[in-house]
Design a protein around this nucleic acid. Structure first.
Length: 219
DNA sequence: TATAATGTTTGAAC
DNA sequence: AGTTCAAACATTAT
């Protein structure tokens, strides 16, 4: 279900649990759930498509992959992968990847590469692109180390907006166009967010025939 | 019922 | 040892 903007909304919806203590943990995740019990949520964050629940000394990373979902203060019929009960509600995750990340989250994640983040650094993205002139631009856009949060939809829309062919090699794109593309990666993501907030994403999308749909794995 | 769709990790094969 | 790539995983609307 998720690209960056969706995870950003998920984070917003979960901020109500910041500062709250976990009173119960369940779910079919393989991670050891015991360490979460009675811990206080220091913060919830998002980085690209990662949703992060930060505790003192470690972080729980949720990745929805293709089909994952979540519910806040309600449950789905299907068994939860991870379910957290807090003082003011509950947080449930389904069909997702759950991982424990040890240490300070700021040492592990570079938030300047997240297109949704306030600290997004377009210049850093450009520097990374310059280093990979042979890479196809469609692949580069999906590279989470450069454009964390960009997925298949955003990739297609951004390329369409700036009129760059998906199979263009990064090194062959004019600087002016490359700058435009980097800017649009963030800009479109925020449009996406806005439309998602308004529940009218589909109405705002261009007709599918007009997009150059191209998946990186379809070489 | 088969398929496609907002994704990533793993491990085999080279 | 490094790279590539198919397979695996999981859900739901059409």
């Amino acid at each position: 279900m998720p690209e960056g903007p969706s995870i950003f909304l998920m984070k917003e919806a979960a901020t109500q649990f910041e500062g709250k203590k976990i009173s119960a943990v369940s779910g079919n995740t393989k991670i050891d759930k015991a360490p979460l019990l009675n811990k206080k949520v220091i913060a919830v964050k998002s980085w690209g498509k990662h949703f992060l629940i930060c505790f003192k000394g470690f972080t729980v990373r949720i990745h929805l992959l293709m089909f994952g979902s979540y519910r806040i203060n309600e449950k789905k019929e299907t068994p939860a992968r991870l379910s957290l009960t807090l003082k003011n509600g509950e947080l449930n995750f389904y069909a997702c990847s759950v991982k424990i990340i040890e240490g300070d989250i700021n040492d592990v994640y570079d938030f300047t590469s997240d297109v949704m983040n306030d600290d997004w650094d377009a210049k850093a993205a450009k520097k990374k692109l310059v280093l990979i002139p042979e890479t196809l631009i469609c692949d580069a856009l999906l590279n989470q180390n450069i454009f964390a949060g960009v997925g298949n939809i955003i990739k297609n829309e951004v390329l369409y907006r700036v009129k760059i062919h998906p199979k263009s090699k990064v090194g062959k794109i004019q600087m002016l166009k490359l700058n435009k593309l980097i800017k649009e990666a963030r800009n479109y993501s925020f449009d996406f967010l806005k439309w998602k907030r308004d529940y009218v994403l589909k109405k705002n999308g261009l007709p599918i025939q007009k997009r150059v749909v191209y998946r990186a794995t379809y070489h």
